Amino acid sequence: MTDEHCVTRDHIELWNKRVLPDGLASVGLGTVLRGSMLPIVVWLGVAAFVYFIYNPVVAAVEGGLFLAFSLLGFTLRRRSGHSAKCSLYGAIGGVLDKSMAGI
C-alpha cells in the first residue's frame, strides 16, 4: 500500500466527520486527534477521576491499557504492510474509535 493512499477517510474513521475533506486525502495526526475529541476527553476524564478518587496507580493502569492497545494496533498494521506513519495514525485512531463503541 502506498503512503499517499494509506491514511485516507476509508482507513481512519473519525468521530467528527466535519474535520475531513471531501474524497480521499492524506490525514495528519492533528486531524485524527481533532476528530477524536470525545474519546480523548473520556479517556482523560476517567484517568483524572480514578487518580483523585482511588489511586494514582489505577490511572497508570489505564494509561498502560491505552499504550498496550496502541502498540497492538501498530504491530498488526505493520504486519499487514502499512507504513510506519500509517500504522501510528491508524493505531491511535483505532483505539480512540473502538473505546467509544457503546456510546
Rank of each mutant, 00 (worst) to 15 (best):
A48H: 00
A84D: 05
D3R: 15
P39C: 11
G30Q: 03
L71C: 13
M100K: 01
R79H: 12
R34M: 09
G23N: 07
M100S: 08
G28K: 12
V41L: 15
L76C: 14
A84T: 11
D97Y: 09
A101F: 04
F49L: 15
C86L: 09
D22F: 10
R9M: 01
S99A: 13
N55L: 06
A48P: 03
A59L: 09
I103T: 03
G28D: 12
D97V: 00
K85T: 11
V27F: 02
A59W: 00
I40E: 00
V19F: 09
M1D: 11
F49K: 02
A59G: 12
G73Q: 07
T2S: 15
S36T: 08
G94T: 05
G64K: 10
L14S: 04
F49E: 00
S99V: 05
H11M: 04
W43V: 08
V27C: 01
V46I: 15
A91V: 07
E62W: 13
T8H: 11
M1K: 10
S83H: 04
W15V: 08
H11Y: 14
N55V: 09
L24D: 14
N55I: 03
L72T: 10
D97W: 05
L72Y: 09
T8D: 15
S99I: 01
G94D: 12
A84N: 08
A48T: 03
G28H: 11
A48S: 11
G93T: 01
D97T: 02
A25L: 06
F74K: 06
K85V: 02
E13M: 06
F69I: 03
K98H: 08
A47T: 10
V57A: 13
S70F: 12
D97P: 00
V27S: 05
V50M: 09
A47N: 02
V61Q: 13
E62T: 07
G93E: 01
K17G: 06
Y51R: 11
P39I: 11
V57C: 05
L44W: 02
A59C: 09
H82P: 01
I12T: 02
E13G: 00
H82T: 04
M37P: 00
L65V: 14
T8W: 03
E13C: 03
G23I: 10
P39H: 07
D10Y: 06
C6E: 15
R9G: 08
R34C: 07
K98Y: 09
Y89S: 02
G23L: 08
S83E: 03
G30Y: 00
I103N: 11
R77H: 13
V7M: 12
S99E: 02
V41A: 15
L24F: 04
K98S: 04
L67N: 02
T75E: 10
L29R: 05
V32R: 05
R34S: 14
M1I: 05
G63D: 01
M100H: 10
A60L: 14
F69H: 04
P39V: 07
